[in-house]
Design a protein around this nucleic acid. Structure first.
Lengths: 155, 155
DNA sequence: GTAGCACCTCAACCTTACTTGAGGTCAAGG
DNA sequence: CCTTGACCTCAAGTAAGGTTGAGGTGCTAC
């Protein structure tokens, strides 16, 4: 088991390898594990060992995050899979369909907002009673306290 | 509760009035003031008094927030106005045009993501080397411990 | 003259998604 | 033997955008 240690496809990965191959930090990996998004067993020396499937799992997490799904919801979705298994291509189709609806919602809300703004550039009003921009009844307004999802947006 | 307001248009507003009329909490108003987004003077009894223009200003803040602009950037944009004045309709046109670009960018990113997902539902892959979803290079995420080149095999 | 309300300050707390640091273990290499 | 590097744990810190609470003031009303 020493000489034949497969360079290309090790069966189990250390936390550092997962981090490098997923492009995220070691602390983030440990954080995900603490949150129950991924799981590992331990090596003889008490080090984390991950199955190769963790790479797919982390990928799914990252994609969902880009969509704007909070980690807790991602965990819930993953947990809802049969036997808590690592998603197969099939599962991924279901998950992605579900999250795509979320994404569509977000895009829709932002698009409506853009349209409102386009209409409002002409009027420049923000008038109390006239301006639809002012009236957040359009929905969207925050879900409770705490930070809203902030994308890499700067100005 | 139905205290008879001094005529229709009080020239100055208390913090509670601003909160009620903007549909946000008193603590949020104070928070915005602490952050320098709005300003007030004090009444004889040390209570905050706001000019009527604060309503427009808060509206602008809320719209910008819906777009996804962080408060610090909103403050910067407002501060950049001549004399730090409360935005006129003219100013608002400029601000909104600027923020609309942000909004467009955000919508564009999400839309690209959606398209990628649509393509990926068919493939169900998330495959290491094939899947564009996995490679966040699409996004301008060069920040932090960003994504690194993923190579199958030894890196 | 005291209740009640709106207001005041300041500090601490909340959530999300992590990062950072202190202090310790383990295996390999010179 | 000693260092180096990767790993470990647990606590605390960070950022944004506020909220909550304690303790106190001021005005109006009954």
């Amino acid at each position: 088991m020493d000489k034949i240690e497969p360079v290309q496809f090790p069966q189990e990965l250390s936390v550092g390898e997962v981090a490098r191959r997923c492009g995220i930090s070691v602390s983030a990996i440990r954080f995900y594990e603490a949150k129950g998004l991924i799981a590992s067993w331990r090596s003889h020396g008490n080090q984390r060992r991950y199955p190769r499937e963790v790479l797919r799992r982390v990928s799914i997490v990252k994609v969902a995050q880009r969509i704007g799904i909070p980690l807790a919801s991602i965990k819930a979705a993953l947990d809802a899979l049969p036997k808590g298994r690592t998603p197969t291509a099939q599962d991924w189709r279901k998950l992605s369909a579900r999250w795509q609806a979320d994404l569509d919602g977000r895009i829709g809300r932002l698009t409506r907002l853009r349209d409102l703004m386009t209409g409002c550039i002409g009027c420049g009003c923000l008038s109390m009673k006239d301006c639809p921009l002012r009236n957040p009844c359009d929905e969207l307004s925050g879900r409770g306290p705490g930070p809203q999802l902030i994308e890499p947006g700067r100005a």
